[in-house]
């Protein structure tokens, strides 16, 4: 096999690695927002998920338990967010920002003792036979469990949102909570569930960072990926398939800038590091130009406090 093919393969694998955490966080946020709740605490939940996953793996030696711990920790922070915005009717934007600040601080505190510790990362699971196919085999069928899970999640959520009754109710609650309430649906409970699911997925996204991407803990290691995931949801106009495309596109931009730095492109590295975030801003601006398109899929009640009245 020629060197350039191997090189391309390596690039593709790193793109998958960069895209998967974004994909988890963005899919979770998409479900949350479909219920009408805005979770700006995504970045904080990813960080808490990352530190919890790392700590659980260090203590138990089992990275799968680490993933579960990451999901549970993310869900727990989401529950706190829900308590504030759903039960106490606090402003979702302010509370979400507070959750991020809280997550940054708490994860740094909890992770202080783990800096410099190493773990065995999440192992790759080659799918027998298929993984041995030349070229494509290792590209598609030789990954860790979370990569497969993230792709299954895209399919599962597409089916769930568009083809199940529960998915229909979720969309209805995000579209008009007052109508859903009038028809007798438990709006607050559904929003809690959607928010907790979103938190758990953010936690898994964080776990991917600390268990796979760089199997170690460092403070603030999400480096703004939570915000990128939030932007991705808008970019994808709340559709699972487009979240997938968006996550891989942003993953690609991230990796390209790394390789660009590696190959000594004569642009200051700071500019290259900006690239993924710049791309986020540019895409958001382009999308927001067409307000009609944007509104067609946007859950109509997104970010609004719902006070169930009689």
């Amino acid at each position: 096999m020629s060197e350039s093919v191997l090189m391309l393969q390596a690039v593709a694998l790193t793109i998958i690695g960069a895209a998967t955490p974004l994909l988890f966080a963005a899919l979770g946020e998409m479900v949350t927002e479909r219920s009408g709740v805005l979770n700006l605490g995504l970045e904080g939940m990813m960080l808490i998920g990352a530190v919890a996953a790392f700590a659980a793996t260090v203590v138990s030696g089992n990275p799968y338990l680490g993933v579960l711990a990451g999901a549970a920790a993310g869900a727990l922070v989401a529950l706190l967010h829900g308590l504030l915005v759903l039960s106490l009717l606090a402003n979702q934007v302010a509370t979400g920002l507070a959750m991020t600040l809280f997550g940054v601080g708490l994860s740094a505190l909890l992770g202080a003792g783990f800096v410099g510790t190493t773990i065995t990362p999440l192992p790759t699971l080659a799918i027998p036979l298929l993984a041995d196919v030349p070229l494509l085999g290792s590209l598609l069928f030789d990954h860790n469990a979370l990569v497969y899970l993230s792709l299954l999640l895209v399919v599962g959520l597409s089916l769930f949102i568009y083809h199940t009754r529960a998915g229909l109710i979720l969309r209805a609650v995000g579209e008009s909570p007052s109508s859903a309430h009038a028809l007798g649906y438990p709006v607050i409970r559904i929003r809690y569930l959607a928010l907790i699911f979103g938190g758990a997925m953010a936690g898994v996204g964080g776990a991917y960072l600390s268990l796979v991407s760089t199997p170690m803990w460092s403070e603030n290691m999400t480096a703004g990926r939570g915000w990128v995931a939030l932007a991705l949801v808008v970019f994808a106009s709340w559709k699972p398939g487009r979240v997938l495309a968006g996550a891989y596109m942003f993953g690609g931009v991230t990796i390209l800038q790394l390789h660009g730095q590696g190959m000594g492109v004569s642009i200051p590295s700071q500019f290259l590091s900006m690239l993924p975030y710049l791309a986020t801003v540019v895409v958001l601006v382009l999308i927001s130009r067409d307000s009609v398109k944007l509104r067609e899929n946007r859950p109509a009640s997104l970010g609004r406090v719902f006070r169930p009245s009689a």
């Binding site: 009754r165 229909l168 969309r171 008009s176 007052s178 109508s179 009038a182 067609e296 109509a300």
Partner: peptide, 18 residues
Amino acid sequence: FQHFSLFEALTVKENIAL
């Protein structure tokens, strides 16, 4: 209802199912 308890973004069928 007087102010219809409908979901604008959904289809007639989905609204009825809800």
